[in-house]
Design a protein around this nucleic acid. Structure first.
Length: 553
RNA sequence: UGGGGCGUCGCCAAGCGGUAAGGCACCGGAUUUUGAUUCCGGCAUUCGCAGGUUCGAUCCCUGCCGCCCCAGCCA
């Protein structure tokens, strides 16, 4: 496994574990990442499993990957495989420890029987509505079910029949007998098993009853010897219930520690909403480059190292926090800056002709693949008398601080000569269509004497340039918190993807899907892995370059 | 107005009774054939508010205020 530098910053979980190890309360660290295979993983999950795998790594323990597959109605193997691939993509390894809650269904059933025998569980035959009414409210205690005092024998028989499929869905339910007046709603006789005549992705039609997450999660951790069950804050209220099951069953007790889940600005993180975005075709799929899913980010071109850096950088706490999307983008730039080959591409072209350069001449200029890393080599860049430059690199009447091309001004062509704008040609509408320039042919690889040329712009040679499709991605939502309004769909950014045609240097035509380049002065672009064809790449804008000029304006 | 949590710089986040780490952002300045990168420097007399305990409190106590989570046969 690659070990990205980890400026081991302290956090409260690390502190707890360190103390436990020192005091002898624990002698090893076993964590786990327990996703439900009902959707694709997103950046919030990455925070969670980076934490879990990272902790195991730091303390010389291990981290399990366990699928909590207790609801067959929503789960399937496609998600299982995708989740495994995502965790691996980020560079984590669960070794031998690939588990499923469904591996433990027999044991869970035995434990349910055990609790009935101990008078700690009963079969309720109220309808779901009745149960809801009798549960009370936040301020009113609940009312005991009329079935609460059934005999153990009757409970046992009913559960057996539930298991055998003798009842339709919803006819009965197994509940823990705790306290209907508990101020903690989770302790008001929570459901343990429900009847579900459903096909399970791993068990097939073996079961007609399935354990609730609350009756499976804690015991799954216990069976696996998980020492630290790290989960998000919303499960804090469930901890007394998990502890109750563990205690009544007399089994190994993991320690649950909760942390705040990740909130990222300009995006949504709930699986339900991501699923809706996919189903309602607001995006092209789970791997749409605008999605906060790991498959989406991979396709967008975000390197796994950047995501790990991000997870490390944002830290872990117990207060609800909002991380700005720009923090993630900065991690992406940081990584890509070191690894991406530099290329030239023009997204919004304007023609430039070099009057003093022979019309029939084509020069192959040497251009470094990475100016700071010579060992990354060079490539050839064709130069001729007719070029394209970026439209916004020219201004007819520029402010003093604009050091790009303007009438009478000089500018350096990146990796090429210094040129001077001699004449501006417009069409009948006054639109600039071409710039006539002259080149100082003694400036290739050196600066002219006696004058300084500050501006540098990128370009492509007109005849050799190739046209490719480029997708300019932007944030999916234009509200910082899309959930703040009535309906998060209203916050969708209509301009989150804009397709355009770019002119690229010819070398780029052979780019392999999944590779990322820096289009100098523009941004990082990754060859789309779905829609590119051999010799016909489609580029996704991964992230723009920082642009202090844009801020100045 | 039941219960469980949380409030330290613009955003994260250390700190656990001895006098405010770090990262990101931001602002200067240097280098630069990417207005990118890199580099150097700056950036909380103050820890939600008000009292109290103490020689000393962000850390302990009390009371306020604000925010988040819980009433699925979802996870």
């Amino acid at each position: 496994m690659s070990t990205p530098e980890r400026p081991v910053s302290s956090n409260f979980i690390r502190t707890i574990i360190t103390e436990d190890l020192e005091s002898g309360k624990r002698d090893q660290v076993v964590t786990r990442f327990p996703p439900e295979p009902n959707g694709y993983l997103h950046i919030g999950h990455a925070k969670s499993f980076s934490l879990n795998f990272g902790l195991a790594e730091d303390f010389g323990g291990c981290c399990h990957l366990r699928f909590d597959d207790t609801n067959p109605l929503k789960e399937n193997d496609e998600f299982v495989e995708a989740i495994k691939a995502d965790v691996r993509w980020l560079g984590f390894d669960w070794g031998e420890h690939l588990h499923f809650a469904s591996d433990y269904f027999d044991q869970f059933y035995l434990w349910a029987v055990q609790l009935i025998k101990a008078g700690k569980a009963y079969v309720d035959s109220q309808t779901a509505e009745q149960m809801r009414e009798n549960r009370g409210t936040l301020t009113k205690p609940g009312v005991d079910s009329p079935y609460r005092d059934r005999s153990r024998e009757e409970n046992l028989e009913l559960l057996e029949k539930m298991k055998n499929g003798d009842f339709p869905d919803g006819a009965h339910i197994l509940r823990a007998k705790i306290d209907m007046s508990s101020p903690n709603m989770n302790l008001r006789d929570p459901a343990m098993y429900r009847i579900l005549h459903a096909h399970h992705h791993r068990c097939g039609d073996q079961w007609c009853i399935y354990p609730m997450y609350d009756f499976a999660h804690g015991q799954g951790d216990s069976i696996e010897g998980v020492t630290y069950s790290i989960c998000t804050l919303e499960f804090e209220d469930h901890r007394p219930l998990y502890d109750w099951f563990i205690q009544e069953l007399g089994i190994f007790a993991p320690q649950q520690i909760e942390f705040a889940r990740l909130n990222l600005s300009y995006t949504v993180m709930s699986k339900r909403k991501l699923l809706q975005l996919v189903n309602d075709k607001h995006v092209s799929g789970w791997d749409d480059p605008r999605m906060p899913t790991l498959v989406g980010m991979r396709r967008r071109g975000y390197p796994p190292e950047a995501i790990r850096t991000f997870c490390e950088r944002i830290g872990v706490g117990r207060g609800a926090s909002w991380i700005d999307l720009s923090v993630l983008e900065e991690c992406v730039r940081e990584q890509l800056n070191q690894t991406a080959f530099r290329r030239q591409a023009v997204l919004d072209p304007i023609k430039v002709t070099i009057a003093n350069y022979p019309a029939d001449k084509v020069e192959e200029l040497d251009a470094p693949n990475h100016p700071q890393q010579p060992d990354m080599g060079i490539r050839k860049l064709p130069f001729s008398h007719e070029l394209y430059i970026e439209r916004n690199d020219f201004m007819e009447d520029p402010p003093k601080k604009f050091f790009r091309l303007a009438p009478g001004r000089e500018v350096r062509l990146r990796n090429g000569y210094i040129i001077k704008c001699e004449e501006v040609i417009k069409d009948e509408n006054g639109e600039v269509v071409e710039l006539k320039c002259s080149a100082d042919l003694d400036t290739l690889g050196k600066n002219p004497v006696g004058r300084k040329v500050k501006g540098i712009i990128h370009w492509v040679s007109a005849e050799q340039a190739k046209e490719v499709e480029v997708r300019l991605y932007d944030r999916l939502f234009n509200q910082e918190n899309p959930d703040k309004g009535e309906n998060y769909l209203e916050a969708l950014n209509p301009e989150s993807m804009q397709t355009t045609t770019a002119l690229i240097e010819p070398e780029l035509l052979a780019a392999e899907p999944g590779t990322t380049f820096q289009f100098e002065r523009v941004g990082y672009f990754t060859v789309d892995s779905e829609d590119s064809q051999r010799g016909k790449p489609v580029f996704n804008r991964t992230v723009t370059l920082r642009d202090t000029w844009a801020k100045l304006k």
